[in-house]
């Protein structure tokens, strides 16, 4: 039904966003790649000679890089494990018949709306602080020694904080998916003598597979870029114990002002994120045809 005139109009309507996004993508990306090939430090003015792969070599052979890479994987993997399992259980719970379901739902999704700096600081001070935190009081009440979470188990503590923030997201999406499950199918299975566990593993879980994949992929994109939670709690420490790739690049870039190495790290981060992105894009693309 689209006429030639309407096609031209449509193109004119789409072009502003295409041009903006193209510029937003190509200019910084091009500069990052360009900088990554130069010896360029803001603290050392002067020539910026072309050095080829030197920055990549420097960044990758830095022992902090291996630590940061492992921490990134642990952080992403840990949070995914907790939020997906917790999310499935919570979604099953919230799907049951109860009084005040709407209110419970509101309570459960609330952490998602709390800004990262607030949730990290609240957990750090009000809960994990060994002297005045609630966990400290709880330990003392039970006659135990208070545990200094952020200095003794920094990465695990951050995994906990981030999981609290992302659990609502997983729950909400999985709940939406569970609600689209045909209850007659479950009833039929029950009449055929399937117990609650086999009903869950053979009907509910396969039905949720797609939603779980979406949760995993979208969360991974965001979790690879975790920054604020580390920035306000441990600042990457002690040592590099809680430094992830994002935070390492930030330190290299804006604390050491090493533009070359920071950019090389940036390119590595982009490649890693793209590996995940390809899978996510395929999932969403498939849905577009449906």
């Amino acid at each position: 039904m689209a006429t030639k005139a309407s096609r031209t109009a449509a193109r004119a309507m789409i072009s502003p966003s295409v041009i903006l996004l193209l510029g937003w993508m190509l200019i910084p990306l091009g500069l990052t790649i360009y900088f990554s090939l130069l010896r360029y430090n803001l603290l050392m003015p002067g020539a910026r000679p072309f050095v080829g792969w030197e920055n990549y070599e420097f960044f990758i052979t830095n022992p902090a890089f291996t630590t940061a890479l492992i921490n990134t994987l642990l952080l992403v993997g840990g949070v995914l494990l907790i939020t997906v399992i917790g999310g499935v259980l919570l979604a099953l719970l919230l799907n049951l018949e109860m009084w005040g379901q709407g209110i419970v739902r509101i309570l459960v999704i609330a952490p998602f709306f709390v800004m990262p700096t607030v949730s990290a600081l609240v957990w750090k001070n009000m809960f994990m602080n060994p002297v005045n935190g609630l966990f400290g009081y709880l330990a003392k009440g039970l006659g135990l020694e208070p545990f200094d979470f952020l200095s003794q188990a920094p990465l695990a503590s951050i995994i906990g904080i981030v999981s609290w923030q992302w659990l609502p997201f997983a729950t909400l999406i999985l709940l939406t998916a569970i609600q689209s499950l045909d209850s007659e199918q479950l009833e039929a299975a029950e009449m055929d003598g399937a117990g609650p566990f086999s009903r869950f593993f053979y009907i509910t879980l396969p039905h949720l597979a797609r939603a779980i994949t979406v949760v995993v992929l979208i969360q991974t994109i965001f979790l690879l870029s975790i920054f604020a939670e580390i920035f306000v709690t441990t600042n990457g420490g002690p040592g590099n114990a809680s430094t992830n790739l994002t935070f390492l690049i930030y330190k290299e870039s804006l604390l050491s002002f090493d533009v070359g190495a920071g950019s090389a790290g940036g390119v590595i981060a982009i490649i890693l994120a793209n590996i995940v992105a390809i899978f996510l894009m395929r999932m969403i693309g498939k849905n577009l045809d449906a």
Binding site: S17, M25, L31, Y250, S253, A273, M281
Partner: peptide
């Protein structure tokens, strides 16, 4: 469809990957 998918792909760019250019600009 391709335009939509491409737009979405720009969202996958990790912010830290373009921190320095944006900061310097």
């Amino acid at each position: 469809k391709d335009v939509l998918m491409w737009m979405l792909s720009t969202k996958m760019l990790p912010p830290v990957g373009v921190l320095l250019p944006i900061y310097l600009i």
